[in-house]
Amino acid sequence: MLLQAKQAVKRFSSGTPNEVIAVKDISLDLSAGEFLAIHGPSGGGKSTLLLILGGLLRPDSGTIEINGRQPYALSAEDRASLRATEIGFVFQQFHLIPYLTVIENVIAPGLAPRPAGKESSHTELHQRAVELIEKFGLAARADHKPGELSTGERQRTALARALLFKPPLLLADEPTGNLDDENARIVLTAMKEYCAEGGGVLLVTHDARASEYADRTLTIRDGQLQAENVPA
């Protein structure tokens, strides 16, 4: 199993009258090559669940396993190393570095130290980045900075960056939220292709278009998974 969550719970302002249970006892799993979409309204706990699954936000209870390793049982540095090798992230706001060009943004995750045996040379990284930006139709924009890109180009850049090291798991938070149909299609298609290559994709969104590409769809409401919908 690529990703497994068991009874994950996350509370905010715990023990106060303002306590919010963002994630309630959620269990799910994701296999390699699978595209899982989690739908839900804003404030339903989608982003919180994604951060928990990505090893960025420790749950109050429950366990998370990524490729058989529990990120929250690791030290902060080892958890960072796990993220660097196992996970790629795509966010709605792209989070591109404004002073780097497209190709530099794609290469940026290369700053993180890689475990022994998984290091890549600068040339290898550059080659891989070039392939990705060509694949996502960004070749002409390789030397442009994020401020000079359209919204769709920015998201494609963010997606290319997430896939630089071909992580087994791609976590995407509302990647099509700001995109037009065409750009949403490009992004979702790319994710689907990535699954076809063996990667696992977990996407949280309220965009109905995502369901068309997902192998499975879950609905989250008030922090709880409501139903599972497997396309015919």
Partner: peptide, 16 residues
């Protein structure tokens, strides 16, 4: 903050 957060998400270490 954003760039630092995203770099951290990608596994860039705090000392970096």
């Amino acid at each position: 903050r954003n760039e630092i957060a995203i770099l951290r998400a990608f596994g860039v270490r705090s000392h970096q």
